[in-house]
Design a protein around this nucleic acid. Structure first.
Lengths: 239, 239
DNA sequence: TAGATTGTTAATCGATTAACAATC
DNA sequence: TAGATTGTTAATCGATTAACAATC
């Protein structure tokens, strides 16, 4: 029953064999759904349920229930016929799979409106995120307090990285500054970049990067709403 | 050369036939990539290039160049051998496809730190977004000015919707308030919901919804960095 | 012309869907 | 027991990759 194929995508050739157990590489669509199940199960748990059926999760995410059952099997979450999947097991297993159980230290670069919002937002604690320091090049912003943090000058960043060794850098600087900053951060040993600048960045393989471009999200939403409105009009004309 | 199949996903049965030309339904992975090409082409154009090769776009996005050429063909962008795809054509075509050429009016609900950041951020103008009004239930926030806006009380929201008829509502309220607000907004005729609350919402088919859950994005990034660090360690041990 | 890059067809691969036996 | 729901196999579907002819 072992998986037949373990071909790695470009940039991963150095991995000699697939990791086993909970840490095997999951297809991206699976990972997307698992993250959503985590959120849905959390809210279901808060409202008093102690189990949730594959059909329920499927309806929320807009897929077939067999997909959900396969996803669950892929990470070793087992359900019970007539009952569903126990929410505590979903949460603890996905905690492990998504890596949320450990502490994930981060620094934040850029304290404009979006950077400040991130610094103040407490909702990421749930995912183990701890922002150890926030930086800005703007002398006017240095010294200000944002949430629990005081904005530090960029010159202090190198030393902070050496002391705290954070894995994650949250980049919320203007697009034209992002390329250089990210290159510098990677050079200082940063392992993950969470990029909010509206520019598509690249990093060496072995470094994790997430381009969280909200403008692109908006573009997709606008595309979708235009498509639906057009479809609605056509249905009205022909119906 | 017409497409053979036009099956619609669940919830779209009312559409009698597929729209033609630039507005046909694109597979989600294609749309994701097109939005990224738009961003990459924009920056390439700003740095003085006037064309870009499929291989360049492919390298940025981490796919094969044939994928890029197919995507371009799918939306009718034509390139020239030895040159690549002209950037003006990429931008104007994707403007149309993504629906960014029109004006997209929106209201913003919730002026916490994230809502305020969105209200202040000018980067969405590029996508035709115009926030016509911002609202909050908190009497303490009403009357404050955020960017160019003054926070209005929720009671004024109904009337604003009737007058401006915005298509899009940006929801940046706490998770426990989001469900009711969104249901109300849909009832008032809103066509698209851009949800920043950390909860997976559902809307009737025919309404567009984008759950922009940043915590989920973080979870995926953490998963990825853990996987890579683990892979790196294994390579070191066995290598 | 020679060479680089597009455009497109055919082959492969992987993910989704359908179906149903196993199980509580 | 009967019925609902999981778990899993086989079939279908769609997207990616490989290959190469067309073209500037």
């Amino acid at each position: 029953m072992a998986k037949r194929r373990e071909a790695e995508p470009a940039g991963q050739e150095s991995v000699p064999r697939a990791p086993e157990g909970e840490h095997r590489k999951l297809p991206r669509p699976v990972l997307d759904r698992l993250a959503a199940y985590y959120q849905i199960a959390t809210h279901a748990g808060e409202s008093g349920q102690d189990a949730i059926a594959s059909a329920t999760l499927a309806e929320f995410f807009g897929v077939d229930s067999a997909v959900v059952r396969k996803d669950m099997a892929a990470v070793g979450i087992s359900g019970r016929p007539k009952v569903g999947y126990p929410i505590p097991q979903i949460l603890s297993k996905l905690d492990t799979v998504l890596g949320l159980s450990g502490r994930n230290d981060a620094i934040l670069i850029g304290c404009g409106s979006l950077g400040s919002a991130i610094a103040r937002y407490g909702g990421f604690n749930r995912f183990g995120l701890r922002i150890v320091a926030v930086f800005d090049t703007d002398a006017q912003k240095v010294g200000r307090s944002i949430g629990h943090h005081t904005v530090l000058p960029m010159e202090k960043c190198r030393r902070t990285i050496e002391v705290f060794r954070p894995k994650i850098a949250i980049v919320a600087v203007p697009a034209n500054a992002a390329v250089d900053i990210v290159q510098w951060l990677v050079g200082r040993g940063m392992k993950a970049i969470w990029n909010f600048a509206p520019i598509h960045l690249k990093v060496p393989s072995g470094i994790s990067l997430r381009n969280e471009d909200l403008g692109l999200g908006l573009a997709k939403l606008i595309h979708d709403v235009n498509l639906k409105m057009r479809a609605g009009e056509e249905a009205r004309l022909s119906g």
